[in-house]
Amino acid sequence: MGGETVACQVSTATGGARRRRFWRRIGRLWGHLALIPLSIVYMIPFFWMLSTALKTDRQVMVWPPVWIPNPIAWDNFPRAIAFFPFWRFLANTLTIAVLAMLGILISSSLVAYSLARIRWPGRDLLFGITVATMMLPYQVTIIPLFVQFTRFKWINTYLPLIVPAWFGGAFYIFLLRQFFMTIPQELSDAARIDGASEFRTFYQIVLPLARPALATVLLFEFLARWRDFQGPLIYLQDPRKYTISLGLSYFRLEHSTEWQLLMAASLTLTIPIIMLYFLTQRTFIQGIALTGLKG
């Protein structure tokens, strides 16, 4: 398509260089102008969470809502953390999340490789089935899945929350397949001529080039585990095994919710994720464009 034709006509840039730099600068200015106001709009939910987390009991009820709390209730944070076994639940959640992330990463990338880069007869059918599994609303498979895990004697363990991840996830397989498909076939061909096995091609050529996609998979799976409420709720029966998302439901009282504490706890959990996302940006943006197709 368009990309190819343009790529063929590489010529040396000289004359337009200065003009180009000028336009690029103008472009960036416009970029900021568009990004800044939109950023404010996108920060509203977060600001609100922050502001609620710092309100006293009474201030939460003020209408119209106040954005800057006065006084600032810093003690909401220690109170929120003391409201449920915060550190234990956090450790539980991280255990589940890390194991599930590893499983998803390994299995989904293998399967996606099969679907994207190996030509075999059943592959399109398997791909179709993979995408189709996402189309049946999960609400109607909860019960039979629970019954099945009961038969496995997996109830009240973390196995239902971790083991399936090691067999791949449709969303991630589909995602990685799309990325693997964009990697030039010549790379694999060259490797094959060099006598590399399929696994080596996968491991040494395709995976490194798909780094942003792999990071995305890790991020999404992490968030999915972090948020999963239903799974831990029905599979875990011993409160000592509970996770953070169940912990957040501790703030719901009979006729009201401890909003300020709920927000404080959520914030305590969210800020490290935000920092991490911010700091690992490079992982998300290093693909072919940066690692380059040198050789």
């Binding site: 220690p78 953390i81 003391a82 991280l94 890390v98 992330m101 890790l218 490290p272 991490l276 690992t280």
Partner: peptide
Amino acid sequence: VVVLMACQPAQPAGKPTEQAP
């Protein structure tokens, strides 16, 4: 990344652990 994710939230400030009953 994984390890970092595992450690990060567990150690901010450190204080809340002692404070929290």
